[in-house]
Structures are given as C-alpha cells and as structure tokens.
Design a protein around this nucleic acid. Structure first.
Length: 659
RNA sequence: GCGCCCGUAGCUCAGUUGGAAAGAGCGUCUGCCUUCUAAGCAGAGGGUCGGGGGUUCGAAUCCCUCCGGGCGCGCCA
C-alpha cells in the first residue's frame, strides 16, 4: 500500500514541477526520520533551487501551497531547509491496507514471459552441507519473491551426474571400499547413503594425496562414465540418482521444490555441445589456437579489442573452450546449457517424471530418449537467474560473453548471475566438528567448507539439531499437546530459524557459520518473527472462545471515522507507525526485486515482528472496553498477522498456529 | 600482477537510487510474568562509519589514493 501512495506522490510532484516551473526532475522520495514529519518526504526542492536559483525553502512552500490534491494524502508541509513532507490519510490507508492484505495476489498467466531460476546444483556424490543450504535458500526465496511480484518462474536444479566429483566417489567404491556394482546398488538403497559417500569422498581425496599417480584413474573413470560403459558407469548410474534423491529429501524439509532436473548426461548424449560448438565456430566466437601455450585448443577471446588478431597467436589469456584432446570444458557445456535455457540451441531434452511432491507438484528430469509423450514446455526463458556463489563470477562472465559474441545481446543482458558470498566456518566451529586446524588456518577469521576434505556442517545434521532444540522448547510449553502437533511445531521453528539465519545476511556478506548463532531462537531470528504471528493468532483464538460467532471477515471493513479518531488520540502515532509498517510489504517486495536482495524481506519481517511485540506489550486487546477501540486494535492485529505471514512465506518460513 | 567483494558499537551485521541527530541483534549491567504464552518488553552503556584527499547545498553512501582482509584469474568443475 505504501508503494502505491509513494508512486502517486512522485508522479504528482513531477507533473506539477513540469507545469509550474518547466523543469524535468526525477523526484526522489524518502521516509522522514520521525513520524511527526509525515510518511513521505522529498528533497526535490534542493535540486530545483539550483536550477531556479532560488531558496529551496521558498520553493517548497510554494509547492506545498499549490500542489493539487492527491488521493490518500491529507496534507503537505514544509520542513528543514526545504523538504516537502506529505502526510497520509491514516484511516484511509488502514482501510486500503486491510482489504489489500486480505486479497490474494495475482499470479502470472501461462503465456507470461518466463524466468528460469537455476539453483542448488549440488554435485551428486555426497551429502548437502551448509554452503549448499545458502544457495538453495537464496534461490528458493528468489523464486517465491519473483512469483509474488507476478512473474512466471521455472525452477531448475542442474545435476552434474557425469562429472569429476561423481567419478571420484566411484573410484572410492572400486579401489577403497572394493565394492562390486551390485553392492554399490544395494548400498545406494540404504538411508543416509549421502553420509556414506561424504566419508568415502574425503577418503578418496586422501587416496590421491598419498600417491599422485592414482590421479590417472580419474581420466579413465570419467571417460567410462561419460560414455555410459563398464562397471564405473554402472556405479555412477546407481550413485548419482540415489544422492539426488537424498538432496531432494533434504531440500523438501526446507520447503524447497524444483520443476526440472536437467542432467549433464543428456547434455552429452543429446549432443547439445556439438550444436553449440557449430554455432560458436560458424560465428567466429572461438577459434583453433595455432601456437603458444594453448596450441591445439579452441579458445574464446574475452577482450573484443584484439578480435582481429586471429593469426597473431597471442591467445594466452583467452579462455579454453575445447581442450587439445578434443574434450569440452565445463564452460563450454555451460554455454550450451545457457543457450538451451533461452531456446537458442535448436535442441531439446526428452523428459520423464522423477518425483511427485506431497502437494501433487511434479518434478521432471531430462532423459536421452523416450520419456513422457507430452511434457511441459521447459526452457525458452526471457530471463535466466543463475544462483551461483561469487567464486564463479569469472566463469559466469565467460558464458555471458559467449552469448554476446554470438550476437544474442538481449539474452546476454538477461543472463543474471545471482551471486552470493560463501559460507565458511569459524575456527571454533571447525574445531568443534573435530577438524584439526593448521596454524595458518587458526589465524584466519574463518575456514572454508570443503566437501573434498569432508569439512563442513551437513545439512541434515544441522536440521536435526535444530529440531531437537526446538522440540525441547515446545515440550516444555505444551506438554499435553499431541505428539504429531509438537513435532510439526518444532519443525516449523527449526526451519524458520535456519532459513532466517541464511537469509538475514546480504548476499555480499560471507557467513562465518557458528552453531551458537544458528541455533538461536531469540533476538533477530525466524522464531522471533513466528512468535509475533502466534501472539496475534492467540488473541483471535481467545476471542473466538469468548465469542463463538466472531468472524475474522468482519475486520476487513474499517470504520474510518473511528480509526481517524484513534490515530489522532494519545497513542495515535504509535498505532500509526505499526499500521504504516504493516502496510509497507509491497514496498519491501519492490525493493527486494529491484536490488535482488532477499535479506531486505528478512529485515522487514523482523522489524514488523518487533513493532508488533511492542504494541502487544503496551495494549491489551481483549480487555479493551471501548468497542470501537477494540475493533480497531483487532484490525491492527489482523493486518500485522496477514502481512507478517506473507513476508515469512516469501522467506519460506511457515507461521505455526501455536508455539 | 589483473579482476571482484569486504572494512560501520566488544562480537555478528543492516543502512535500497547521495538527504533531516549513525541503526539492529548478540554480549554486559538494571528492571518487568496473579496478564491476549517472558521464544517477550523497557532502560543503561558502547561509534575518529579503516586513514587521507576530492565532488556536492548535503557523503557511511559517489570519485581518487593509501592501509588491512577475503575470493577469483587451470587443457578442474
């Protein structure tokens, strides 16, 4: 609601300034520091003062006096050296906010332009860890926010099932665990298979370190897996899908779902790369390096300045796309995949159903042949978000440069690297996990998580710990509630704590993980926000006990005279600040989409919860004797509840009925 | 060496396109549960916004420079 009025004010001001002063200015608006100064302020007169060579305050006074009425704005004032302050009609705002909050937001039609969000992308060779959780939480929240903003979104989780990491675990099964393909298949059916592979993978790293010549095994194994032949391929075929299912289960605990699993095996088998290679060659984006250190490789130059220097042989800083042995690099495959996402490759996968979620939603996976006869139309996106940590920025730039060089300027511009910094461990946390730090590591502010070394907090372990801790709190408070109910509440609290913890940091902040912070349910946390919702709901529950015929719907009609009176009364400003904040979810969503920053919503949810807790503490709703005031207070509670639930939903955090 | 990111309270972090007296959580100290659940609320203390220049009516925010830290820059992914 706030966003609507703010936009209205900007338009009114810029129109008025154009007509009255013949000036085209971009009107910036801001929130005044105190509520007594109004809800929207504009420093536009400072800019006008320069252009008109007049005192800013004088212009501001003129504008305040002459600006035509704006719907929803009660009065205009002048403050400071020349700020124009606008005051909302409080009662009208509350009425509009309450109806707006109760309405369901419009979702995108089936023909709307599509956004693809690719996230999670965990190598299917070990259990998911805390770093993967940040990726998935950010990606999933981006999806939720985009959908709420009215976009059509397709969620992809790319599976590198034929890569080095899978090959390494296969090597572990053959040479360390000495398993047959049949034995591996049996193991893969066991629960916690991802944990088994976690340990095995770390042992493979040691296995290579002990004798570097063993690295030769990797090339052979990889080749066998890529070609789909031999026992190594058979094992990879057992390991990767089983691990993928473990990851899906983990992510489902967090409320994260996907639409499609594109798999690398199909990118190979369906020769996506060959199509991309032809395109890249035909349009001279890549060329065969004749001399220098990259001789025999197909390379792509990144600086356009030297694009005529084909024959100069100075390709040393170019990016290798095809190795001298003819195999394609990861970036090459990624260019092909990115082209497919935009529908530019001229090829498509076949698709089969891979999994059905409890809500009936189907997850599809790519296959090489056959598949379902009429799968949904995947790909053909207008915007692509790749949720990948900032360490891969260089490679993402190469992919985009490839698209641009191919002449797909528009798609290159709409290829968004949704970048974020890594999750690391505090040295204390690493030590707690039983890891012995080197002297150098102990000096550092944090230690990098490493699947290769087996150093990291496994996602399921963390969720388990959170659930146990939450369960202890719930048991204490609700010893008589049924078991299933207590489990469900503890789960909501655990996930709320985890997702909030991962989302409250802005994307550019490195998270130094520590159990103490992550396991907290107090202060700026998910459970704090959930608790505010529960408090609002408790009021309504108690009210229904007292008045069985009470209907929540009755609160959607606001008596504006009564509301205006109460907003003008002794606690009026406090009530108003709460209503205004609750009515600002739209502004927050707008800002979160604009800045591509989910943390904005996390901060907002916390602020709203905090404001509500203060209100809750100061005003007893149910014992209020003045009927108008009681209704008004209930309306505030209802508005906050709806908006807070909405904000938490965007963060993937459930609001339990009780805690 | 080149590129990207970070430096704000004891600690962990916000501060959206430059705007009105720098914010939050944690931690420390002091209060508040016969009440709509204290997973809460109130108060106190704590800051040369890394340093120095510059642009501007106005800079934590933009530019330059220096210092400190992190991450990339592979015929790995």
């Amino acid at each position: 609601m706030y966003h609507v009025l703010e936009a209205r004010i900007r338009t009114a001001l810029s129109t008025h300034i154009r007509q009255r002063y013949n000036q085209d200015v971009t009107v910036v608006t801001e929130r005044p520091p105190r509520i007594e100064m109004g809800e929207v302020a504009s420093p536009v007169c400072f800019e006008l003062a320069k252009r008109l060579k007049r005192a800013p305050r004088q212009i501001a006074q003129e504008i305040a006096a002459e600006l035509p009425p704006i719907e929803g704005i009660e009065r205009i004032g002048v403050a400071g050296g020349g700020y124009v302050n606008l005051y909302f009609s409080r009662a009208a705002f509350l009425a509009a906010a309450v109806t707006g909050a109760a309405a369901t937001p419009a979702s995108a039609g089936p023909d709307a332009p599509k956004c693809i969000v690719e996230h999670t992308n965990i190598n299917p060779n070990k259990a998911a860890h805390i770093g993967h959780l940040r990726n998935a939480a950010l990606g999933d929240t981006l999806v939720r926010v985009l959908r709420r903003a009215g976009r059509r979104v397709e969620v992809q989780n790319y599976i590198d099932n034929t890569g080095v990491q899978v090959a390494d675990v296969v090597i572990g099964f053959i040479h360390i665990a000495k398993k047959s393909p049949g034995a591996v298949r049996a193991l893969a059916a066991q629960p916690k298979f991802d944990y088994f592979c976690w340990d095995l993978y770390a042992r493979v790293t040691q296995f290579f370190e002990e004798d570097k010549t063993r690295l030769a095994l990797r090339g052979d194994t990889l080749k066998s897996i890529e070609e789909g032949r031999g026992p190594a391929a058979e094992m990879a075929d057992a390991v990767a899908p089983a691990i993928v299912r473990c990851h899906l289960r983990t992510m489902e605990r967090l409320g994260i779902e996907y639409d499609l699993l594109p798999r690398e095996s199909e990118i190979l088998h369906l020769k996506f790369w060959d199509a991309a290679f032809e395109l890249l060659k035909r349009r001279n984006v890549i060329h065969l390096s004749a001399s220098g250190k990259n001789a025999g490789c197909w390379v792509m130059r990144l600086n356009d300045a030297a694009d005529a220097a084909d024959a100069s042989g100075e390709d040393d800083d170019a990016k290798i796309i095809v190795r001298s042995n003819g195999t394609v690099t990861y970036v090459g495959k990624d260019i092909a995949y990115q082209l497919w996402k935009f529908g530019l490759l001229g090829r498509d996968f076949h698709y089969e159903k891979f999994h059905t979620y409890p809500d009936g939603h189907t997850l599809w996976a790519s296959v090489s042949s056959g598949g379902e006869p009429n799968p949904p139309a995947f790909g053909h996106a207008s915007v692509v978000y790749n949720v990948i940590d900032s360490r891969q920025a260089y490679l993402q730039n190469v992919v985009v440069a490839g698209l641009r060089a191919l002449g797909f300027q528009e798609q290159a511009g709409r290829s968004i690297h949704f970048s974020y910094e890594m999750v690391a461990l505090t040295p204390r946390c690493a030590a707690e996990l039983g890891y012995t730090l080197s002297e150098e590591e102990a000096e550092k502010p944090y230690v990098e998580v490493s699947g290769r070394k087996g150093l990291g907090v496994k996602a399921d372990d963390l969720i388990d710990r959170l659930e146990v801790a939450a369960r202890a709190e719930v048991d204490q408070r609700h010893p008589d509630s049924p078991e299933a109910e207590r489990a469900a509440i503890a789960h909501a609290i655990a996930i709320g704590a985890l997702r909030y913890f991962l989302l409250k940091f802005t994307r550019t902040a490195i998270i130094a993980f520590d159990f103490e912070d992550a396991l907290s349910f107090e202060g700026e946390t998910g459970p704090y926000c959930e608790y505010a919702v529960v408090r609002a709901r408790n009021i309504f529950r108690k009210l229904r006990e007292q008045q069985p015929d009470f209907d929540l719907e009755s609160l959607t009609t606001v008596d504006q005279d009564a509301a205006a009176r109460l907003f003008g009364g002794s606690d009026g400003n406090a009530f108003w600040e709460l209503a205004l904040l609750a009515g600002s979810l739209d502004t927050q969503i707008e800002a979160a989409v604009g800045a591509q920053e989910p943390a904005f919503l996390a901060k907002y949810a916390f602020q709203l919860a905090q404001a509500f807790n203060l209100f809750y503490h100061r005003h007893r709703v149910l014992t209020e004797e003045n009927a108008d005031k009681k209704t008004f207070l209930l309306q505030l509670c209802r508005l906050v509840e709806l908006q807070l639930v909405g904000a938490l939903e965007l963060l993937g955090i459930e609001s339990p009925e009780q805690m």
